[in-house]
Simulated assay, not measured.
Amino acid sequence: MGCDTPPAPEAAPAPTWAGAAPSVRPTPSGAGAQADCPEGGVRLSEGDGDAAMGLRVADIQLVNCGTQPYVLEGYPEIRLLDKKRAPVEVAVVHGSEEITSAPTGVEGAPQRVELRPGQAATLAMVWRNLVTDSTVPAAEGWVLDVTPQPGAPRLQLELRHSVDLGNTGKLGISPWKAAAR
């Protein structure tokens, strides 16, 4: 008997996401985000949020991780999903007018944004965490389901911080904007 080296362990299987359709690929957020580029050539990440007196503002970033320019114009299609990936009942509105009169960064007219590989665009979201009827369950979204532009593959982003709507039922979004460089 000598000092034999044990065999190397087998490679771990590739990650899988239960419940995701082939055209919907969850985009993890945070430090452990995957390095490859999803179908469609763009990736989502969650920015920092701000919460004050029940008013919430959050930023989502879309990065062109592909090899071709990527054009955005207007507003994305957004759905919120709960922890079990079931749809959350919410009205997605353009701008913040139906949520607050305070400036939030969600305001602004849609513009054409062309992203070269490596460039990013941002989307701001605003909502109120407010419960006005104790008989209506509070809604909470943990997954953002986004179609960046008509005809583009959907992306899912698992959020670090929930979209805690209370029972207001409204989420305001900005149009796509070029990220500050």
Rank of each mutant, 00 (worst) to 15 (best):
C3P: 00
D4A: 13
T5W: 07
P9I: 04
P9V: 02
A11H: 03
A14T: 10
W17T: 13
A21K: 12
P22A: 14
P26L: 03
P26F: 02
S29R: 12
A31I: 10
A33K: 11
A33E: 14
P38Q: 09
D48V: 11
A51L: 11
M53C: 07
L55R: 11
V57G: 01
D59V: 11
I60Q: 08
C65F: 10
Q68A: 01
P69C: 01
E73V: 04
E73N: 14
G74W: 03
Y75G: 08
E77Y: 12
R79H: 14
R79Y: 10
L80V: 09
R85C: 05
P87W: 08
V88Y: 06
V90M: 09
H94M: 12
S96L: 03
I99S: 04
S101Y: 06
P110H: 03
P110F: 04
E114T: 15
R116V: 00
R116E: 08
P117K: 02
L123R: 02
A124N: 14
V126I: 08
V126E: 01
L130N: 11
P137M: 06
D145S: 15
Q149S: 12
A152R: 11
R154Q: 15
E158W: 07
S162H: 09
D164I: 00
G166W: 03
G169C: 07
L171E: 02
L171K: 06
P175F: 04
A178Y: 02
A178V: 07
A180N: 11
